[in-house]
Design a binder for these strands. Structure first.
Lengths: 265, 265
DNA sequence: CGATCGTTTGACGGTGCTCAATCACCGTGG
DNA sequence: CCACGGTGATTGAGCACCGTCAAACGATCG
């Protein structure tokens, strides 16, 4: 590696596993802070801080399971799935990461990534070396609360995912998943009603803890009940209230919905 | 409350919801840092830092679902369950917290506790006001990495819990749960083989996403296969290898175990 | 246009949920 | 001291839901 004093090469040095087609992209610490929800502007003094912007193609791995931790990442664009592969090859999807989400932080405690992150589409991420975290905190005292908020949000989201898998009925799981996705899209300023699923049915199924055929069946069931309009990966929520009511049912008693189904048939 | 300038009263001031039977307990910042795994000693300069040690009886709530966040907590002794209650009264157990675990951090992002924490037995926790976090970071630069490690560990544990609920067969879920518990006990310097379950079957069932009767059946099944010896809440792991093998099976194919069962019968 | 992958739908069998009874344990009060 | 009620754990029977296997359909791409 050529060590010159130019800023461009500094950036390059902090972008691991950079492939040939990657080109240096314009970015700065301000971009990351704005992504994390900071309202104020960062002074120009910290523009030299080592912050890499990595670009990935669909199906590329941001990091592999078991790999040593070098960076934590913030999704700038695109979508990821977090997966853990069992010995027999079964892929467990633990969650999906969208714009603004934190990736790889669960690796800090043990020094290795317990899960892999795979891009579902072309994506860009900010990469922050863990060894630079202390320096960044010293340079920008306001960064620490932002990072804490981000980790807290991840923790809270993981809790919601658990509730998702805790539901017994498959339609309830799917309903909860769609509502969570809808809420996140709305938080990003996008439509809460019209969703485009970036992941395939198999990934959704793994995430919900059911077979992928069951996901299909649940989609058509929700569509039959008038909750949704489903066209492959395009989903439109037609009756948000009914969807919420479905998602809130816990043990048994989908009978109310069964009646509605009978009424429509 | 009598307001004098003594140090004891300072402690009292930072212990919210203190009941009459609670007495001031000896504690210091050093105790917390040692609990978090710090190897170095803290200087006496920071002994005046506001750090409360709260004591709770069994079944008492450390914080309620939806309550505003004031503190984050580190479990000093005892055990907790983290629960979320649905509208129809169903209690979803998201996880259990033991000595050294962080509680309440998922509330920081939204300012409200998304889950409640209930003591499973008499317990003690260190309480750290969130508004004091920045001050503590300034006073002790080495604290920030410890907090990050703790949050990272929580995040990683939540991922493991997800894997737990992702398993299809009930016995597999129970096997994974017991292995996770065993690993945590060993990490705390206790026996990995002899476990005393601090939670009732219903809590375990909710945590695994099955009916509590199924938990009972799975316990007896694992015992019949020679994995465990179960006596109410006392569990002894007899065949760790077989238990691991069971826990690693994902989709279908418990047939191997079924053969073993037939062999024993 | 064929090939491959993803999605949907059907049929069947098994696992676990529901309902219910029994047992064990414990603290209370007669 | 033992009867009593209460809670938690275990076990059984029946049935619905979902996983597995299988086939057909659709989309995308070379």
């Amino acid at each position: 590696m050529y060590a010159t004093a130019s800023g461009s090469d500094l950036m390059r040095a902090f972008a691991p596993q950079r492939t040939a087609r990657d080109a240096p992209l314009p970015h700065s610490l301000s971009d990351l802070l704005r992504l994390l929800g900071a309202t104020w502007q960062v002074g120009a003094s910290s523009d030299g801080f080592p912050l890499a912007l990595r670009q990935l193609r669909a199906d590329a791995a941001l990091f592999h399971e078991g790999a040593g931790v070098e960076c934590i990442y913030f999704v700038q664009s695109g979508a990821f799935k977090r997966v853990r592969t069992a010995e027999d090859g079964y892929e467990q999807v633990l969650g999906f990461a969208l714009r603004g989400d934190l990736l790889g932080f669960d690796a800090i405690c043990l020094g290795r990534h317990p899960t892999a992150a795979i891009a579902l589409e072309d994506a860009r991420v900010f990469a922050l070396q863990v060894q630079d975290l202390a320096g960044l905190a010293a340079l920008l005292p306001a960064f620490e609360p932002l990072l804490q908020k981000a980790t807290s949000l991840e923790l809270q989201r993981q809790g919601e995912v658990l509730q998702l898998m805790a539901a017994v009925a498959a339609e309830v799981r799917l309903a909860r998943f769609l509502l969570q996705l809808s809420a996140r899209m709305q938080l990003m300023g996008q439509s809460a009603r019209r969703l485009y699923l970036r992941m395939c049915r198999r990934d959704i199924a793994s995430h919900l803890g059911v077979a992928h055929e069951t996901v299909s069946r649940s989609f058509t069931l929700l569509a039959d009940w008038g909750c949704l309009r489903v066209d492959n990966r395009e989903v439109e929520i037609l009756d948000m209230g009914l969807l919420r009511q479905l998602a809130s049912s816990t043990r048994g008693s989908l009978d109310l919905q069964a009646e509605r189904l009978a009424g429509h048939a």
